[in-house]
Structure formats: C-alpha cells, structure tokens
Simulated scan of single mutants.
Amino acid sequence: MQPRHLPVEFLDAHQINLVEHPPPALSPQERGKVDRLWEETKAHNPSIFDGPLVASLGIDPPGPGPLVVRWARMTYRHRALRQLRPPEEAPGAVFVTVLLPTEDGLAVGRNSPTTATPGRWALPGGTAEPPAAGHLLDMASLRLHAARELAEELGIHAADEKLRLWGLTRGARFGSLGFHFLAPSVPSALVRRRHADLTVSETERGNVPELDEIAFVSSAEQAACLGSGADYLHQVLCRYFST
C-alpha cells in the first residue's frame, strides 16, 4: 500500500530566520501568461486585488542552527505560476493564522465570494504582506500581521505580544509556510457580536466581509462537517485538540 501523503507537515523550529531574496525570474512567455491569467481571474472576481505578498522560496535544510526561511516580494497575480510550473518550482506563500479559543471551541470562518478562496473554511488569517523597504520581515511583524487579520476578520482586538507561535506548517505541494499563532481565550458570545457588528459596518460601506459565516469547532471532525476547508485545517485542528 502506498503511504498517504498529508497536505502539510509540521516543522519543529526553536528559532527562525527570515531572509529576503530576489523574486524568481520570469521568462517573457511566463510573464505574458501570468498577465493573461490574472485578467481572467479579475473577470470572474472584479473585487480581487493584485496586492503585495510574501512568497516562500523554500527553507534551508534543517540543521543544528536556526531554521532559515527564504522569501521574496511578489504580488497576487504571480500565484498563477502554480499553473505554469511544476509544484517544486512554483513559489508558495507565507501566511499567518490565529487559533482563537472560546468555551465553545476554536473560531473558524468561511471565506466570502470576494476572496481568493471563496467558500473555504479556515482559521482567521491571511497571506503575509512584505514590510516597507528597508525593514525586516521577522517574527514580530508576522505576529503583528496575525493580530491585524484577527481584527479585520472577526473584530477581535488582541495585543500582538499576547499571540504566541503555536506551530509552523509547510505545504506538501508548493511549500507554502503557515505561521499559526495562539491567542488568549475569549467568550464565544463576544466573537459572534463583534463579527456581526463588523459585517454591518462593512456592508454599510459597500464592502463584503472577508468571512461571511463563522462557527466554533471542538474537533477536526466537526470542522470537516462544515464543508471544504483550507489544506492545513484538519491537521492543525487534530494536533491542537490532541494536546
């Protein structure tokens, strides 16, 4: 029997160094195809934005020292390289999530139709954004980004210094790196109220909330019953609830 390949793997790292590299070079043919695919994407989802992102270029082989993460500044349209290159040659993403405990379980949300992954259930979070020129991407900036995503998606404001890195995952296909932070516990009623208020305020401004529905799960199996989930979700929840 062939071994079952899991979508992500957990990386054990006590110290992480994020080192910036130039983005991968594109041939003229690749650049033309990337632009064409982006125009097709915009035609289906006019609200999508070609914003900056942190692309993962891989990690150095594990050794006795810090885990070295190689990253580059790119934009969302370059995710199309995943359709043009073999998986091992296409850059992945660096993203953050927040595990937010409540008395009813961890908070999860369903991505709205205007997002890059509509209808998919995930932890609050998103793709990391590169720092301003001259500034470093480090764990402090990733922690700050995670806190900002929590506020933008659920309306829950947590001090970034209260978030601690709970786990690091790497996608089996493109090598995307997920930095998963654990937040202090809050009441589920507060999360429901803040998300409802956020939905109203976003709608009044003519925007669509990033999460069109939220739920609370106390097991990976319960989350699977909600529907399609992020590739990391089942494994992260299994590990969280087992500990």
Rank of each mutant, 00 (worst) to 15 (best):
G167F: 01
I48R: 10
R31A: 13
E40C: 07
A158S: 11
R120T: 05
M139G: 05
L142Y: 13
L190Y: 14
G125M: 02
M1A: 15
V8K: 06
H145P: 01
G125N: 14
R148W: 08
L154Q: 00
P124H: 06
G175R: 07
R194M: 02
C225R: 11
P61E: 15
R85C: 01
V8A: 04
G175W: 02
W166L: 04
F181E: 03
A158K: 06
F10R: 12
R77V: 04
R70H: 14
W71R: 05
F241Y: 02
G126Q: 13
P118Y: 00
A13M: 14
P101L: 04
A72Y: 06
F49D: 15
T243I: 11
C238I: 10
E213W: 06
S218T: 14
Q83S: 12
K42P: 03
Q222R: 11
G32P: 00
L18C: 04
G125K: 00
Q2V: 03
L81F: 03
A159P: 11
L18N: 03
F10Q: 06
P118S: 12
L53Y: 02
P23F: 09
G167V: 06
L123A: 03
P28N: 08
T203W: 14
T41R: 11
S185A: 15
L37I: 05
M139L: 13
R4S: 10
P22L: 06
V208H: 10
G119P: 02
E161M: 15
L67D: 01
P28A: 02
A147I: 11
G175S: 09
Y240D: 00
V8D: 01
R79I: 08
R193P: 15
A151C: 04
H234F: 12
L144E: 12
R73H: 10
Q29I: 04
P28L: 08
A215N: 09
R193K: 11
S112P: 00
A132Q: 08
A25K: 07
A220G: 05
T115I: 07
T114L: 12
I59C: 14
